[in-house]
């Protein structure tokens, strides 16, 4: 753990990524207390301050009905992070189990599982999600469902390839000679050796899930108003560019910062786990 932190700290970019991620998580959790206008996460209307440019009262300006953009961004981070965590918390175990079983057992079972995975992978992810959202109601839950369905096959692919190569290692042969059962070999011997790759991918993916979710809401298929969401904020504001630029630029920057932070951290973790002594 200490060694991991030291390697992470030795690369300024990864350290910066870690700081950004910690900051984003903190502001998301503390949103109700630190937001200047905590009630503005809902259907509040204050036309006296509608569509104001950034100033002393509203640091990032206000939207068309007078809600504080900065406050809404803090709440939107809550939604984005929840969505990312829930999606990955469901997609990762499914993909991991499928990849492990296919990778260790090989044979016809492995072939069948991986062909199913290939079918999912052959459909462009956003297209699949849009198609699902066309059938389902556009709610937060369904958005999470759609993103999860397109996400797990990537984990299956990753874990499959790591498990394939781990299977050839001597420690797997040792366990087979002793007669340990398949569950022990897959989950207790091989899985721990796949974890570094999985954790690294999860960190990188947090950024991508946030982008995909934002894209869905940008298209009107994700989180619905009045719930604040970075993607729908950008979408609404886009119509008023360039005059009311703050409507688009700040939520856009918020997406950028989150994605940037998770990617830098993910790259750093890759270095941490890549070092094998």
């Amino acid at each position: 753990m200490i060694r991991a932190l030291r390697i992470l700290a030795s690369n300024p970019l990864s350290l910066f990524g870690l700081l950004l991620v910690v900051l984003i998580v903190l502001v998301a959790i503390l949103a109700p207390w630190i937001a200047p206008f905590p009630t503005h996460n809902g259907a509040v209307v204050d036309f006296a301050f509608a569509n104001k440019a950034p100033g002393a009262r509203n640091w990032m300006g206000t939207d068309l009905v007078g809600r504080d953009i900065f406050s809404r961004i803090l709440y939107a981070y809550q939604i984005s992070l929840t969505l990312g965590i829930v999606v990955l918390a469901i997609a990762t175990p499914i993909g991991t189990v499928v990849g492990l079983i296919a990778g260790y057992s090989g044979g016809w079972l492995g072939t069948v599982l991986m062909r199913i995975v290939d079918v999912f992978l052959s459909i462009p992810p956003l297209v699949l999600a849009i198609a699902m959202m066309g059938v389902l109601e556009p709610t937060l839950t369904n958005a999470m469902l759609a993103v999860t369905v397109m996400w797990w096959p990537w984990y299956a692919r990753l874990v499959y390839s790591v498990a394939r190569s781990e299977r050839e290692e001597g420690y797997v042969l040792a366990a087979e000679v002793i007669g340990a059962n398949t569950a022990h070999i897959t989950f207790r011997e091989i899985l721990p050796n796949c974890l570094p790759a999985i954790i690294t991918k999860m960190t990188l993916d947090m950024g991508f899930v946030i982008i995909i979710a934002s894209s869905l809401s940008f298209l009107g298929l994700g989180v619905q108003p009045p719930t604040p969401d970075l993607g729908s904020m950008v979408a609404e504001g886009a119509r008023y560019l360039p005059d009311s630029w703050w409507l688009t630029v700040f939520p856009g920057l918020a997406i950028l910062v989150a994605v940037f932070g998770f990617n830098l951290l993910g790259d750093g973790l890759r270095d941490v786990f890549g070092v094998d002594e």
């Binding site: 001597g170 420690y171 042969l173 040792a174 007669g179």
Partner: peptide
């Protein structure tokens, strides 16, 4: 059988790969 397995054991060539690095 487990008894069969217990009575015949293996020592491998590569002492690095034969031990699980995560255990």
């Amino acid at each position: 059988t487990m008894a069969n397995r217990q009575s015949i054991q293996l020592v491998q060539q590569n002492p690095l790969s034969s031990l699980n690095p995560k255990r």
